[in-house]
C-alpha cells in the first residue's frame, strides 16, 4: 500500500515536471528545424531534416558574439559589485552596533518592495544626463541597487554561532581577520550561490536594458531575441528559438554546475521556523 501510494505521487510529480520542461525541449528542437517543418511537424521532437542553418544565420546577421560578450560583461560586473558590497554591508549589520542600525536596515530592505516602474523614469533621466545611454555602464549602474543580497548574506551570517566569534575576539583578532578567516569561509556557499543568482538574473534582465540600449552591437542577449520577433514581417520562430537556446545555455550551464550550492543555500536561507 505504501509503495502504491508513493507511486501515485511520483507519477504526479513526473507529469508536473513534464509540463514545465517541455517548452525548453520544444525550443531546442524547433531551433534545429527549417521553418516549413516547424509549421508542419509541430510535435516532432527530433526534426526530420535537422539543420544548423538557423544558428548560422543568427550569428551571421547579428553580432551575436559581441552581444553575448556584452551580456557577460554586464552580468559579471553587476555580480561582483553586488556580492562585495552585500558582504560588506551584511557584516556591518550583523557584527556591529550603531545608532539607527535597525532603521537603516529596514529602509534598505524596504527597497525590495519598490516596484521598478517607480524608479524607471527618473533613472532613465539620470542615465541620459550623465550621457550613459546606449552604453553598458548605463545598464549596469541602476541594477546595482538591490537589497536582496544584503538580506540573504545577513541571514547566512546570523546562523554562525556567536561563541565562535567571541572566541576569536578573545584572542585579540582584528575585524578583518575575523571576517576573512571565520565568517567568510562559513558563508562561502551562501555567497557563491547568491552570486550565481545575481549573475543569472542580470543575464536575463530585459526591461531595463531595452529602455537604455539603442545600438544592436551594444545589446544584451534577451534584447537580441526580440529582433527576431517581428509582427510586421512575421516571426521566424526557428530563428527566435535558436536565439533563445543561445540565451539559455550559460544560465543553464552555471546552474547545472553549481546546483548543489544553489539549492542548499536557498533551502537554508528560508527562515527557519
Amino acid at each position: 500500500m505504501r509503495i502504491e501510494s508513493n507511486l501515485k505521487w511520483h507519477i504526479l510529480l513526473i507529469l508536473a515536471l513534464f509540463i514545465s520542461l517541455m517548452p525548453i525541449v520544444f525550443a531546442v528542437s524547433t531551433s534545429f528545424k527549417e521553418l516549413s517543418e516547424a509549421y508542419s511537424n509541430v510535435l516532432g521532437i527530433i526534426p526530420d531534416k535537422p539543420t544548423l542553418s538557423n544558428y548560422l544565420r543568427i550569428f551571421q546577421e547579428l553580432p551575436l558574439n559581441k552581444i553575448t560578450f556584452n551580456t557577460l560583461v554586464v552580468a559579471a560586473t553587476v555580480t561582483i559589485f553586488k556580492v562585495i558590497t552585500s558582504v560588506m554591508a551584511a557584516y556591518a549589520f550583523v557584527y556591529f552596533d550603531f545608532k539607527g542600525k535597525n532603521l537603516l536596515y529596514f529602509i534598505l530592505i524596504s527597497t525590495i518592495f519598490i516596484p521598478f516602474t517607480m524608479t524607471m523614469i527618473p533613472n532613465y533621466l539620470i542615465i541620459s544626463q550623465i550621457g550613459l545611454r546606449n552604453n553598458i555602464m548605463g545598464v549596469i549602474l541602476p541594477q546595482l541597487s538591490d537589497a536582496t543580497g544584503i538580506f540573504l548574506i545577513r541571514q547566512a551570517m546570523r546562523s554562525i554561532p556567536m561563541p565562535l566569534i567571541e572566541a576569536a575576539r578573545l584572542e585579540a583578532a582584528g575585524n578583518f581577520q575575523i571576517m576573512a578567516n571565520i565568517v567568510l569561509p562559513l558563508v562561502k556557499p551562501a555567497v557563491i550561490s547568491t552570486g550565481i543568482m545575481f549573475f543569472i538574473n542580470s543575464w536575463n534582465e530585459y526591461v531595463w536594458p531595452v529602455l537604455i540600449l539603442k545600438d544592436t552591437t551594444n545589446y544584451t542577449l534577451p534584447l537580441a531575441l526580440q529582433l527576431f520577433v517581428s509582427s510586421e514581417g512575421g516571426t521566424d520562430f526557428c530563428l527566435a528559438m535558436a536565439v533563445s537556446v543561445v540565451t539559455m545555455i550559460i544560465p543553464l550551464g552555471l546552474y547545472l554546475i553549481f546546483q548543489k550550492y544553489i539549492i542548499n543555500t536557498f533551502t537554508s536561507s528560508g527562515v527557519k521556523g
Binding site: 514545465s20 520542461l21 520544444f26 531575441l225 533563445s244 539559455m248 543553464l252 539549492i263
Partner: peptide, 22 residues
C-alpha cells in the same frame, strides 16, 4: 528539487515567447 528549479534560471522573455508558441 533540481528539475523543478531549472526553469527559474531562464529568462522570462524567452519563456514568454516559448509559451506563445507552445
Amino acid at each position: 528539487k533540481g528539475a523543478f528549479f531549472l526553469p527559474s534560471v531562464i529568462s522570462l522573455v524567452v519563456g514568454s515567447i516559448l509559451y506563445l508558441w507552445v
